[in-house]
């Protein structure tokens, strides 16, 4: 059972890392949030569109299988997490904790 859990967690992490190649944004702040309710690739696309309306966001991508939203900030920019939570709500999803 423990092996199954470890395998499952490892699989999720791998998916998140593969979905978004963050290495090309070295030097930028990267935030990761839990998001529930994304059930297909089209759902993830709708959330990214809303998040990227924030001028401080350089790039965002959502991992619909791993329940994660990854946000890359513009260099030198910052914003309140509430603006992300608001976008998640506008997309009819539910925000969990900020992972990173």
């Amino acid at each position: 059972m423990a092996l199954l859990l470890i395998t499952g967690c490892a699989s999720n992490n791998t998916v998140s890392e593969k979905v978004f190649d963050t290495s090309i944004y070295a030097g930028s702040e990267i935030r990761v949030y839990e998001v529930f309710g994304m059930d297909c690739p089209a759902c993830a696309g709708g959330l990214s569109k809303l998040v990227e309306k924030n001028a401080a966001v350089k790039k965002s991508d959502a991992d619909w299988k791993g329940n994660k939203l990854i946000v890359v900030l513009e260099p030198g920019q910052s914003f309140d997490d509430d603006s992300i939570y608001s976008a998640v709500k506008d997309a009819s999803f539910t925000a969990g904790k900020r992972i990173k």
Binding site: D39, G46, L47, K49, L50, D90, A91, S92
Partner: peptide, 8 residues
Amino acid sequence: GLTPPLDR
């Protein structure tokens, strides 16, 4: 049964 996001 699932509505699309705002402004979609």
